[in-house]
Each structure stands twice: as C-alpha cells, then as structure tokens.
Design a protein around this nucleic acid. Structure first.
Lengths: 188, 188
DNA sequence: GACCGAAGTGGTACTAAGTTCCATCTTGGT
DNA sequence: ACCAAGATGGAACTTAGTACCACTTCGGTC
C-alpha cells in the first residue's frame, strides 16, 4: 500500500523531478486524496527518506554479517558494497540507487548546502596541502578528509550537548578525531 | 542592514524557536515588509545559513594560517579550535555558537535525519566491535567513525556522478576511505 | 527648479506544503 | 437491520516562497 504510492511517486519524480511533482499529483495518480496521502506519509520528503531508511537497514544487516576479526573501518567499507558494488544481476542496479542517494542529499535541505559550503571552502586548502594533483577526481581525497572532519565535529558537538557541557568540547573533538587520525602524508 | 535584521531574527529564534517565528514577525520587528525581507534573504533558513557561512570562512582563514608542515588532519583539527576552543574573552562564547551549529543541523531538513538515521542504525554495531564501553560519551568514537564513513560515501558518489560513472564507484570509495584509514584496533 | 529614469520598497495575489476539523463512507460485530 | 469504529475525503486555514505591479525616493540632467 505504502509501497504502491511510493512506486507511483518515484515514477513521477523520475519524469518531472521532485520539486515539480506536487502531492496532489501523486495522490491523484495513486488513487487517493491529498488528505489521505498526508495521513500516510506526513511529508513529501518522507517518501524519499523512507526509501533511504530501507537501504540503511540493508547496510546495517550487511555490516552485522561481516567477520568479527575485521577492523571496523574495513567492515563499514564492505557493508557499503551493498550500494557501491555494481550489481550485474539486477536490471537498473546501483545507478538509480546512487541517484536517489544523491537526490536525497541535494533535496532535503540546506543542511546539505551548509556542509557543501564548508566543504567547498575548506577543501581547496587541503587539496593544496595534499600535493598539487589537479586530476578530475584528484580532490576526492581532500573532500573525504574535510567531510569526515566535519562529521567528527558534528558528533562531538552533539555529545557535548548531550552531557550538558560537562566534558570540554575540545576533549570530545580530540576523541572523535583521534579515532580517525589517519597516516596522512606530511604536507607536501 | 542585513546584520540588523539578522540580530532581530536570532533574538526571536532564541525566544520562541525557529519554527514558531514567522517571517512576518521578523519583518515587522525589523521594520520592513515581508516582501522586502524575502528580497534580502530569499529564505528564512538563509538567516541561519548565512551565519554558518561566516563561521565557515573564519575557519578557512584559520586553516590557511596553520604551518605548512602540519598534517592536514591536524591542521583541520586546529582550525576547528575556532569553534571548539572555549573562549574566555567573549561574553557568551562557544555555547551559543555550538547551539547554532546544532540547530542548523536539526533545523534544516531531513537530510540530517537521514544521516542521523543511518548513524543510529550503524553505530551500535561499530560500538560493539570497538569494545564494550558503555560510558555516557562512550559511543562518540563509534559515531565519529560512522559519520566519517558516510561522508566518504557521499564524496565518492558525488565524484562518481561528476565523472559520469567512468570511474567505478568502488574505486572512488576505496580512494576516499583509504585516505581516512586509521590505525583502528582489531575487533575485540 | 522642474523633469526623469532607476532602484528600493510595499501591497496584492498566487502556488504549494502541511494542519485541523468535520462529514461521509465502509465495515465488522451484535 | 443497526451501530460503532476506523478509514477516507473535503473545506478552510497558516505559512513559506514567488510574481507582478504601484509607489516613492533620489541622483542627474536640461
């Protein structure tokens, strides 16, 4: 039922884009009223979020199935194969999934723009420090570093608020970023 | 001018919350019309985003000022001191800033909920693999790992689309995550 | 000093998301 | 056949955001 509406909606999203598709349209094509749509989904975005959550659980299952001996970072990497691995068996494999992933990021909100903003601000300097690659995908490493660092800051800030500031933010940030501290090359 | 409106808005946000403050209210208190407000800011969220962007540039400046010899991850960490370091000189220092940071994350959008969703789904397993800490802030390390991994996936997916899939996503993801690969402890 | 164009401003009306409330229909049990 | 409950649809409302138009104001020109 939810699945049926969802299917209709994603067809329309694919045809016209997310913003150009109204809830009224989705409801009409799915054969229910606007009111009922909102009773089921609450928000238009929840359609996308719901699908993302499904994948999230799949990834979690894959993660849980990784061997105990595997290091966490590696286990995560392997779990991500679920979405990253080009699957030859399914019809339209990971392209649609990554499209959805990417859409979900750009769709929802400005939070993303904020992070993108910080990323685009910080990444050039990091890229420079990593050495002067100017390959098309050359700055991926810089972006990964910056995005992860922001994530650590988010996590630390959240914990900081959760403990009412009784632990200094800098300590928490050290804790978070120490966990990730990679064998980075020395500045060029 | 923008600053003046911004000041009024943040006072109202603090008093009533972001959602319970209408643009009409802000405009009225700042002495301009709703129409003019939108001419200046475009969106209500841009008020918050704008402030975040300011901090972003401050951090970028601090980052650029770090010694060349410093490793990128460390340089980022030091640049983040701008927001993380408890500043004794200013009146209400980093608490408000982090409040804003945190609000900006929860405010804008569901993208954040999605990431939070994935994080909350994946983190317990990672926490378990890191060893059985159950401290209040004990899962910070797990959250940092998961959030960073998600960031790498985002960056890789973005690059993948930018190069029209001519480089396999798995390769890009390896590239991104190898950059971050930490000296993680072996699963307990 | 009157005139004029441009830019900034406000007002009105619109679309669309999301909420609330009420009326209606269906449906399962008595 | 009846009745109560839950699902559905409709109408009205609030708010963000957009489009358009009218008004003012102000600097320059004749």
């Amino acid at each position: 039922m939810r699945a049926e509406v969802s299917e209709v909606a994603f067809r329309l999203f694919a045809e016209q884009g997310f913003d150009n598709t109204t809830v009224e349209q989705i409801a009409a094509e799915a054969g229910l009223s606007r009111t009922t749509f909102f009773r089921y989904f609450g928000t238009k975005e929840e359609l996308v979020l719901g699908k993302m959550a499904e994948f999230g659980h799949e990834v979690a299952a894959a993660l849980a199935a990784r061997p105990e001996s595997e290091r966490p970072w590696e286990a995560l990497r392997r779990a991500f194969d679920l979405v990253a691995q080009p699957r030859v068996d399914e019809s339209e494999p990971s392209m649609n999934l990554m499209q959805l992933f990417s859409d979900a990021c750009s769709l929802m909100t400005r939070q993303w723009e904020k992070e993108q903003g910080w990323q685009s601000i910080l990444a050039p300097e990091i890229a420079r420090r990593l050495g002067g690659d100017t390959d098309p995908a050359g700055d991926l490493r810089a972006r990964a570093l910056v995005a992860s660092a922001i994530s650590c800051l988010d996590a630390a800030a959240d914990t900081w608020r959760a403990v009412d500031g009784t632990i200094p933010l800098s300590v928490l940030l050290d804790q978070a970023m120490d966990t990730l501290r990679a064998a980075n090359p020395t500045g060029h």
